[in-house]
Design a protein around this nucleic acid. Sequence first.
RNA 1: GGCGACGUGGCGGAGUGGCUACGCAGCGGCCUGCAAAGCCGUCUACACCGGUUCGAUUCCGGUCGUCGCCUCCA
Length: 469
Amino acid sequence: MPAPCCRRPGRPARVADLRTVTLHDTLTGELLPLTPELPPRVRIYVCGPTVYGRVHVGNARPFVVFSLMKRFLEREGYEVVLVSNITDINDKIYIAAEREGVPSDRLADAMAAAYVADTDRFGLGRPDREPLASATMDEIVRLIERLVSTGHAYAAGGDVYFSVRSYPRYGELSHRDVEQMDQGEGVEGADRKRDPLDFALWKARKPGEDTWWPSPWGEGRPGWHIECSAMAESLLGVGFEIHGGGSDLIFPHHENEAAQTCAARGRSLARLWVHVGMVRLDSEKMSKSIGNVFMLGEALQRHGPQTLLTYFCSGHYRQPLEYDEDRLREAAARAAGIRNTARRLAPGPSPEWSAPLRERFFDALAADFNTPRALAVVSEWERTANGHEAGTVGSDDLRLMLDVLGLAGLVDVGPEPVDERAAALAQRREQARRERDWAQADRLRDELRELGWEVRDGPAGPELLRPGA
RNA sequence: GGCGACGUGGCGGAGUGGCUACGCAGCGGCCUGCAAAGCCGUCUACACCGGUUCGAUUCCGGUCGUCGCCUCCA
């Protein structure tokens, strides 16, 4: 008999005046309206990385997507609480720490700090809360106890397993039939499980593991899935609006989270399940285990946050996104185009023609967070603005739109501080131009280019700027 | 094999039952001393085969191909 908790939530009235935002929900496979339980409050939980090494570009996509989604929803008038966990207890952390000869908790601390430092460079701020599994142990243990006492979990030799068949809706999120699930051989703990489908909520301490916590079942550590259920519930409650993560987490991670929480609490963990497509390298999922990764820190170093954000926004969040130099070059060119437009703008309110474009921009984001369509509107805005005389178009709307994408910095392109040497060269070039000594003028322009300056001659005289800046 | 998603113009990438997406690159023009930036124009688009329809890239079925997941994974 289906657990009553997993019926689709009803549809409480939306707050008047808030634009309807739809998102693709993995559970139903449909585009559903965002219907906050307590409007205008929107709670979002996103599965963050396991910190056993530096994060790569693929790890960054959910961070970026949901950070931007939060900015958008806040712009729309919602009050957003974004929680994104950091998994700091995991087999891979033990393995990596042992290889490097450091305590596993120190490695996890260091890599968590590196993750924060790397993602900070996007300039999108931090999620409201970034819980650590290791700091949520009481909640984890209590949740497991609840599952044991309700018959959804059982202890076995210091481990605790979730009984998949005690939960009839298992498989509904990932659209799998329990009866058709393939059970591989040699799975850890197979001899202790009552059913091969069952998965670990608590793992007894094993030799060589240098972190452990006390529990009613003995010393050990939590399984991966239960930590997220506990962290999410402890900070957001049950039945929050959006649960997100990479599409590779749909099964088993989110399936298990959903099952655990629903079994323990009698309510669905989240109202909408939103999954982000994979970043690819060489047409394959970017993944540490495959080895085809590009580190986020290096990507930011090479391309800068604005180009990287433009790149992420250039594709719809649910689609795969290829990481390659051509894509990044295009993103850089697009960002440069916005800066060029911004240089011609005046501070202040935008003209009348801007309002419909501005609305189309936000409509695009309201339709399953369609950032490519939103960027297309920005391009139209640019073209329209560039068709007007420089200095006559107010920049407010462009900044408003781009700020939601974390790209307001593209609009704030003041004149570059020109060093004395460059200024002198520019002055000599102007002298040469006045004397119609074009050869000399071009030589001086070449010199400036070697110093990293691009010269643009306009009606108001030459302008010096840093290409790509 | 099961489940999910996808195949759009040189490349990337939205979208729609009939009407310019957009970006990058190319080409032509305007502007410029020349450039750069910008503007205008241009460039065999909707994998293949059937079906529904007055009309399908858009709906349905099939074929081929690609990707993801099937208990490491953002």
